[in-house]
Amino acid sequence: MFQPRSIAIFFRVLVTVLALTATGLIVLFFLFLVKESLPVFQAEGVGFLTGRDWWAGESYGAWPMIFGSAIVTLLALGLALPFALAGAVVASEFLSSRLRWWAKSLMELFAGVPGIVYGLLGVGVLAPAVKEFFGLIDGNTLFTAALLLGIMVLPTLLTLADDALHAVPGKFRDQAQSLGLSRLRTVWAVVLPQAKAGLLGAVFLGLGRAMGETIAVMLVIGGRDRMPAPWYNLFQPGQSIPSKLGREAAEAVGAGLQWNALMGLGLMLFLMVLGMTVAGHLFLKRGRAA
């Protein structure tokens, strides 16, 4: 009944429309965020970003949340990275390909553990443990959130780092070893430098991933919208942007300056995560090309 040609054209149009719907959505998303957050920038100017005081109805200063997100994410990565690198070196350079497949599969499983399960672990196990171990008056702190996040991103980080190391061509290793370098020195002197771009990519993607986590962080970070005093005392409670959104958005959803301010926070989060994701992928690509 239908000519093959008309099916082909129909299919082409269908694919194009559906694909553009999907890609259009993300652009729309961004524009929506900008539009919804515009009023708060009009009302508070740059003060929105640098202000240290957030009290709905009176003032909207995003700095404690931006700081909280950044510091918790960085610390999480700092905690996870040594283990991810060690694991990646062992998996990529010292395991047989069969064992490596198993290790990577396991990491993929662990990367899928739902955030709410980590949240449960955070509330039931980690927060009390942090309180006990460091002799704090309470275990809900920026540090606890960072520790939990560090565990959460470790599998992703390890897998990506292993990929980066594995992408270094075998001939480099052969050459180094024919010069009499041991396997470990080969890793240190040849493989790691060669994999630098890929590893950086892994770090950026890990940062982006960690920064967006909501539920687990929300349950252990303490929920206080203030800078810790002094600012480097991470054994105090704080707030991250996703956690703030998770706690406050339902009350303000849809309209009003409070909603605009929350969307402003969302925009900042979006831009930071976007920056890291894009940087991560550019580095990964460079790593693969090298």
């Binding site: 993300i26 998303f29 965020l33 993607l205 982006g208 991933r209 920064m211 967006g212 986590e213 909501t214 996703p242 959104l245 998770g246 958005a249 969302g266 989060l269 979006f270 995560v273 976007l274 890291m276 994701t277 894009v278």
Partner: peptide, 9 residues
């Protein structure tokens, strides 16, 4: 990039 967008957003 879309894969990286925080889910709460």
């Amino acid at each position: 990039s879309m894969n990286g967008v925080p889910t709460i957003l």
